[in-house]
């Protein structure tokens, strides 16, 4: 009896989530709407919907999926060429649990920094399919400081305490030299595993096609590569992203004209297809 009631409650909530998404679209309030479909092998399909709405000087962002709803509020203060400050909070609620997160970041003059704090009672991927399959507390900091006009020092620090109560930390220090291309060198530690970092970023042709590749190798291994090619003067790009990591995990992403496709392997296969409709305004 209780199970039947719960099932009906779940169906009702699903209906409400879909109805809310359609209502927002119909009201024409949204600045952007992203429709998606996420599927994981041997699991059922999950439709996803993201909407960004203006709310005074802020943007309200809503995320809906089959079994969870997330609401976020984001804002920014611009200082023209001198920099900017952005900030935001988000809360998610689903059948699996709840989560909150806050971020603040900005750049002024020679310094750029960002701070984030996340907490969830379930895996964050249960609240939003695009988030990592980790739960509990996560604190992160990254900063970049210009040593000179073409030299940048980077620092990343992280702390996690997962749902089982295990804590781990991470840190990464890097140095980037920008000539025609940008070369990055660094050292890092992630949960007691040491690694070295090598990066390269540069344009491949006159049209501005840009490749960025970063290799982290040592007691862990991860290669990240992103290729971006401008498609037109409307700021449309073709983006290809590839990440291969050891212990084995991989992602392959494709993005063009508002269409996103992400194929993920993290012990199981999943595919996420999305399409974004933009109506102007903040993004």
């Amino acid at each position: 009896m209780i199970r039947k009631g719960l099932h009906q409650y779940q169906r009702l909530l699903r209906f409400m989530l879909v109805a809310l998404g359609l209502q927002l679209a119909a009201m024409g309030l949204a600045q952007s709407l992203t429709f998606g479909l996420y599927g994981r092998l041997t699991d059922s399909l999950t439709p996803t919907l993201e909407a960004t709405l203006p709310l005074g000087d802020f943007d309200l962002q809503a995320r809906l999926q089959r079994d969870a709803l997330g609401l976020g509020l984001f804002g920014a203060t611009e200082f023209s060429a001198l920099g900017r400050l952005s900030y935001g909070v988000r809360a998610g609620l689903g059948f699996a649990g709840w989560g909150v997160e806050s971020r603040i970041g900005g750049t002024v003059g020679s310094l750029a920094a960002s701070l984030e704090a996340l907490y969830s009672t379930t895996l964050r991927s249960h609240l939003w399919v695009g988030d990592e399959a980790e739960g509990g507390l996560k604190l992160g900091f990254w900063g970049r400081y210009r040593l000179g006009p073409r030299e940048t020092l980077g620092l990343g620090l992280g702390f996690k305490r997962n749902l089982a109560g295990f804590a781990s930390g991470s840190g990464e220090l890097s140095y980037a030299l920008r000539q025609e291309q940008t070369y990055t060198f660094g050292l890092g530690v992630d949960d007691s595993r040491l690694y070295a970092l090598l990066g390269w970023r540069g344009e491949l042709d006159e049209a501005g096609t840009l490749l960025e590749a970063t290799l982290r190798a040592g007691q862990l291994g991860r290669l990240e590569a992103a290729l971006t090619a401008p498609l037109d003067e409307e700021l449309n790009n073709l983006k290809l992203r590839l990440t291969v990591a050891y212990p084995w995990a991989a992602t392959l992403g494709l993005e063009a004209y508002g269409f996103h496709a992400d194929a993920i392997y993290d012990g199981g296969f999943s595919l996420w297809l999305r399409y974004t409709l933009s109506f102007g305004g903040n993004e």
């Binding site: 611009e78 200082f79 023209s80 060429a81 970049r144 210009r146």
Partner: peptide
Amino acid sequence: NYLFLTNQLIIQPRAKARVEG
């Protein structure tokens, strides 16, 4: 307005953008 350190391109309407500072 392009910010190198964060690799961000901020686009604002001319009427609202502050280009002083």
